[in-house]
Every structure is written in C-alpha cells, then in structure tokens.
Amino acid sequence: MSDHTSSVSRKASNDAGRVSAATAWQIRRERFRFHLRTLKLAWYAYAKDKAALGALVFFVIVAFLAIFAPYVSPYDPAEAVAGINSPPFAEGLILGADVDGRDILSRLFWGGRIALLVGIGPTFAATVVSLMLGIVAGYVGGWVDQVIMRVMDILFAFPLVLLAIVIAGVMNPGVGTVILAIAIALAPYIARLVRTTTMNVKQQPYIEAARAAGAGTTAILVRYIFPNMVAPVLVYATTLIGLMMVVGSGLSFLGLGVQPPDADWGTMVAEGRGVLRKAPHATVFPGLVIVFVSLAFNFIGDGLRDALDPRARSR
C-alpha cells in the first residue's frame, strides 16, 4: 500500500518543479504525514499483540542493562567478590557466584553485550549482503542469478551450525570471528527470501507502469523493489536474531568465541559445566537468559509480521 501512494506523490513531486514552492512544501508535508500515519497504524497493530509488546519491553531492559553494564552491574565481572560457587542470595549476591567467586549477575550484564552483539551483528551483516545479492539475482536474472544462487546452494549444502563452527574453528577465536562465521553461514537463507520476493514484485503491474513512465533500473530498485523487501526481511531477520544468539553463544560455549576472563552467556554456561552438581545456578541462569532473550526475538518477529503485513494472519 505504501508503494502505491509513494508512486503517486512521486509523480506529484515531479510536477512540483512547475508549481510554486509553497505547493511543493505542502506535498512534502502531506507525504510525511502519510508515513507518520502508516507508522502509527503499524505500531497500533504491533501493540495489540501483548506478547510482542512484553517481549519488546523485556528486550529494551536487557539491552539497557547490557549497554550500561559498567554503571549498573554491582561488582566487577572479572573479580572474585564472594566464596567460590556461592549460591544465590548468599553473601549479598542475588544470583550467587561462579566457580571463581565472581558475581554472576554482573557477568550476565557484561556478557549481554557480547551475546546481543553476536546475535544482532551477524544477522545484520548477512541481511545487508543478502539484500544486495538477492535483489541483483532476482531482478537481473539470467546467468547472474544462476551464478549467485549456485554459490548459495553450495553454502546450503552445509548445516548452518556446522559451517559456522568450522569457519570459526579454523580462524583465531574471538567475537569478530564468530560474527563473520555466522554471517557467512546465514547469508544464503536470507538471500533466498530476498530473491523470491524480488521476483514476485518484479512481475507486478506497477513495475511495468513505472518502467513505461520512464523510471530507470536504479529508481525501480530503490523506490519499488526495496520498500517491498522491508517487511518480509525485517520479520525474518528479527526471528533469526534469537536463533543466531543461541548459535553464537554455542560457539562461545565451545571456546571459539570470546576468551576468558571476558564473560559471554555461552562461556558462562561452559564454565558452569564443571561444577554442575555443586553449583547448578552458575549454569542455569545464563542459559535461562539465552532462552528468554531468544524467545523475546521470536515474539517481536511475530508482532512485526502483524504490524508490517496486515495480510499475514497472526497465529
């Protein structure tokens, strides 16, 4: 619906050269109001889904705690502040201490930075790359499409987690490695969605109309193809963030990500593994956080789908 109106207003602004500056300003204001209204409607649709709203609030809180970890965490995440494996609520630590006597709550705050980065970073990178590849493949078609999609097929031949583990495994361990590894493994999935969407949009009559009106390839891609991509890709990517956080923490769990003494939810689970019996809380809490945040991204994705695509039925 938004592409329809923007094409109308585009035509109007083309004519605007001939009308007075005041009218042009009015048109621009109308267009802005229209976008504002669309956003408002989308927000209402999103907020109607209570789970999505709750998940968003939860995510904002988690992100806030992670970003401001230096200010909100009660203790230094790398320093022993209590007895080894001290249980929750003992010695003034809400979530207890880990195997080195470090405050688990503080480490969760600090670890959130890396966990969120490892979830959002690769998904974002893969999305940007896939958008370019997928749109080119879908729009240009022919041998360009063949080459791009065959290369993607090759990456598809590996299970995602295997590819990520192996790429991260042969390179030097670290957060950057994990992000790169997951992004490579993830890109084909998003690229395929982008390509299919592009091919569907390409066949729409309004593309033909735009071309007949003299729009060039760039204009068509930017004004018509790309806006149609936002909803499906944003929804898919949001859902993937949670999953990629699980995978990324998994790589950290295997020792391929952030190195000690830095905290990450995955490494925290790994560190707790040795004292599973004595201090189950050291393993349970970070894992619970991973599950909750991953779930939150799921709900946010569902909410976004309802908000951005009114036709999609909510399940």
């Binding site: 699980v246 769990f253 599973l276 393993t283 894992g287 991973i290 599950v291 779930l295």
Partner: peptide, 18 residues
C-alpha cells in the same frame, strides 16, 4: 514447544545431565 524451540541444545543437555 515454543520454549523448547528456543532452548540451546548445549544448555538443555547440561540440565538433563543434572
């Protein structure tokens, strides 16, 4: 199933062991 689908296998494994 929604919760299980988002549970990291390595963490679930440890809980089950526990």
């Amino acid at each position: 199933t929604l919760i299980l689908g988002n549970t990291p296998p390595y963490w679930l494994g440890l809980l089950i062991v526990l």
